[in-house]
């Protein structure tokens, strides 16, 4: 549950946080980079969920399994939820919501890794 895959997700998330901030500061609308980045990130998160469950199923290790799956599911739900909530306000606020979602994802990935390593709630 550690390694390059999780690091890639964190890297892309933080990159998109930065890009959202640039768009916000320069008063620009969400662009293709943000949209494509978001789609790629969501696909990676779905992969993370599936990979995590597969790894968990094959592991004898003792850790908080329900919590682990909870974080993985939350990770996949955040971007779609933020997208729906952001659509309700097409001003810069919508972009702000998306930026918050990108900012939260690295925290969730880190929590997934912590739970996997055995430090629970």
């Amino acid at each position: 549950m550690t390694g390059w895959y999780a690091t890639t997700i964190i890297g892309i998330s933080l990159g998109l946080v930065t890009w959202s901030a640039i768009l916000l500061v320069t008063h620009r609308a969400p662009d293709l980079v943000l949209a494509l980045g978001g789609v790629v990130l969501e696909l990676l998160l779905i992969g993370f969920l599936i990979g995590g469950i597969v790894q968990m199923a094959g592991s004898e290790q003792d850790f908080a399994r329900a919590e682990f799956v909870g974080y993985l599911l939350t990770g996949t739900a955040i971007l779609p939820a933020a997208f729906i909530w952001a659509r309700g306000d097409k001003s810069r606020a919508g972009l702000g919501v998306i930026a918050v979602a990108f900012l939260v994802l690295p925290v969730i990935v880190l929590r997934v890794q912590q739970v996997w390593a055995g430090s629970g709630v």
Binding site: T74, A82, W85, D89, A93, G96, V100, V121
Partner: peptide, 22 residues
């Protein structure tokens, strides 16, 4: 729930979800 409130609600929602699940 509009403008900056949109972002504020999103942050509150994240705390609500995290705190409830935990």
């Amino acid at each position: 729930g509009r403008g900056f409130g949109r972002v504020l609600v999103a942050i509150y929602a994240i705390f609500a979800l995290a705190a409830t699940a935990r």
